[in-house]
Design a protein around this nucleic acid. Structure first.
Lengths: 390, 390
DNA sequence: ATTGAGTATTCAATATAATTGAGTTAATTC
DNA sequence: GAATTAACTCAATTATATTGAATACTCAAT
């Protein structure tokens, strides 16, 4: 607020970055594309597209992918993205562990690792992260030249606007600017995000949301988070804290309760523990699901209407193309939820001409957010927005 | 979906439009501003800002507003917006009436009118609208040269993406493309929006949201709508139907009910009618409020927690700077609601360092959306986004 | 009063990248 | 085989932003 962020003006160079992103975005969405086709889609002249493509070929980001036949006229030379041309690193910092992942332009996972830590203070984490990046590059056989940057996932809230105020869950990080600390330690530009937003990006770069540009992601992590992607860009709100869906009240037979007290991973783990079953790990939950444990069924019976309510609210307020369910939950549970959620008929999303399912199961597992951290970087290059001054 | 909107590429001319908008936006927010200051805020060179200012002065959009003293160095020449340099027309098409408004760059109302119609079909409305525009220009003493464009408010949903599907509430408009029909009839570029979004813009151009760029607007119209403005731009969602807050379920003592069945203008009118009081017009409601009619009190008792719940959801999902209450409700009722709404403590918006109230009373009255229609046009010129291809 | 530092501004030259228009190539259709 | 259509290239032009040098004005220190 008080510190107004510089809204960057445009000039020739920034236009080029932006237009280059448009070209890449189009190629990615179509798989292969010709120059004239890209020109029509972007409103640029064919000459401009030609120049940009030439630059991209020179940089190795795209390659010639044959000619398109069938039509009249000169067959178009098509181009495709050279995934391995560029890579991005992602780290996830949690109280008990440091996770890392390396992906390429097409979202392929080249490396992943997990290190347990007893102390997540910057002094411990930063050198570990640098180490992990070096090993990742080494193992993937890549040099720093092709590294676009790094993303980091940390428990929020962190002050997007400089005014943090609230304490983070990570001891020792209150006084530290994570972006600066990580940029220096890793020696690359760093983006910091919360888990739900990062996971949402993972789905766009390599997962089930590849064809989508405006969608929501319900993330099962510690609690329940909502990542919203609008036109290929993460929606953060005025203070960077949008998507706090875990605390919204949902109706239950016992009266209103917070969504994440009813429908989260923690909620399931808790009632399993109350019933004398193990419920701490993803595997515990998977077993409860597979055995059709009556306690799991109890959770499902209360989680389903609660999540259905959440879907209703998300659909009516955000009007997304679809809602993805993902995160630290066993894949079969996500699939079951996605298939059997009670979807309100009265929602604006309930339509006959709908092509995409209203709810989609996304990537499951503990690495989702970590991969998402790396996906953040890929996304800025593949669908840039001028307003971000990328 | 199938029809991908052309994401326009950037070039020198579009950059200029965009940068020109940045300059205007800065001047508007500051009241008066010097060139070097604008250059710092926008990242543009002072020379670029100088050129843009020269152009704006030539066009009459800004004027020299004295020199800034007090500092060291050469006193900066400051500039301010010449409100009367450009105007915008807004129309609101309803089943029973046609409303029109003319505002200038600074949001001042130059003309407003209301014509009752028995038939809202295009054949009736279009000539009437043209007539109203001509009279508006005449009465304000303005020529068409200073008219930037027109905005129109209609009952949605209309297919942003070409696929309408759902019937509109306006008979005769199903088969017509409103943008094209109105553009031809009025002979200016036309933007079409729903009432809540338009009203939200009215608040930004001339109302209580002038300093805000990301906020939400709860619009009391027929039912209850939500307009969301993100970074100065209307949030529409993937299919143009975002903000349908009226149908989301809220807890009541009698179980869950749709928000607009509990807290809307219609709901108040209905229970007043059930109690034998008149409740059709805004004046009826104002009287019930002023007399502290027990039926009004009943409505208030159920509307307050329901709206409080809505505020909670909006705050946690959108994280706005503030939420504005406005529309076809008597101003005293809006003020009472804004003051006495139960605001959840658990929301991310509940913070010590907050400068702006969480809930603000906005413009009341039946013309809000009509003025908003005109405000849409002003806003595109005063805070353009390159992605919109303005 | 004089000097120096700091800020705003202008002028002229340069740079970047997009557009335009004419011409070329290669396929399909008639 | 000619006409048509579509993709593409080349060279020239254009729009706009940036850069660097020079100038103007004011406050503060000497």
């Amino acid at each position: 607020m008080s510190v107004r962020p510089i809204t960057p003006g445009s000039n020739a160079e920034r236009s080029r970055v932006y237009n280059r992103g448009l070209v890449l975005e189009h190629i990615r969405q179509e798989g292969v594309a010709g120059r004239a086709e890209i020109a029509r889609a972007s409103g640029l002249s064919t000459q401009a597209v030609s120049n940009i493509i030439a630059e991209l070929v020179k940089d190795g980001w795209v390659y010639e992918a044959g000619r398109r036949a069938g039509q009249r006229g000169l067959p178009a030379v098509t181009y495709a993205i050279q995934g391995k041309a560029a890579i991005a690193f992602g780290v996830e910092i949690r109280p008990g562990a440091l996770l890392g992942a390396l992906i390429d332009l097409e979202g392929r996972l080249l490396f992943s690792d997990r290190r347990a830590v007893t102390d997540a203070a910057p002094g411990t984490i930063l050198p570990l992260a640098k180490d992990m990046l070096d090993r990742a590059l080494d193992q993937a056989g890549k040099g720093r030249g092709s590294l676009m940057g790094a993303g980091a996932v940390m428990p929020g809230p962190f002050g997007q606007t400089g005014l943090s105020g609230q304490a983070t869950d990570l001891p020792g990080w209150d006084a530290v600017d994570p972006v600066q600390a990580l940029s220096e330690a890793l020696d690359v530009p760093v983006t910091v995000e919360n888990d739900a937003n990062a996971a949402a990006m993972a789905e766009r770069v390599s997962g089930v949301a590849q064809g989508l540009s405006t969608y929501a992601y319900l993330y099962f992590g510690t609690g329940l988070g909502l990542g919203v992607v609008v036109d290929g860009e993460i929606y953060r709100g005025a203070f960077g804290n949008a998507g706090e869906i875990g605390h919204i009240p949902v109706p239950t037979p016992q009266g209103a309760a917070a969504l994440e007290d009813v429908a989260s991973r923690i909620a399931l783990g808790r009632i399993l523990a109350q019933g004398g079953r193990p419920g701490d790990t993803v595997e515990d939950l998977a077993r409860a699901h597979q055995d059709r444990d009556p306690i799991y069924q109890d959770w499902l019976d209360q989680a389903r209407p609660a999540l259905g309510h959440a879907v209703h609210v998300i659909e009516n307020l955000f009007d997304p193309e679809s809602i993805v369910l993902g995160g630290a939950m066993p894949a079969p549970i996500l699939a079951e939820l996605a298939e059997t959620l009670p979807l309100p008929q009265s929602s604006i999303a309930h339509r006959a001409d709908r092509m995409i399912p209203r709810v989609l199961p996304g990537t499951a597992g503990r690495m989702t957010a970590t991969i998402g951290a790396a996906a953040l970087v890929v996304n800025t290059h593949l669908s840039p927005r001028l307003s971000l001054g990328a």
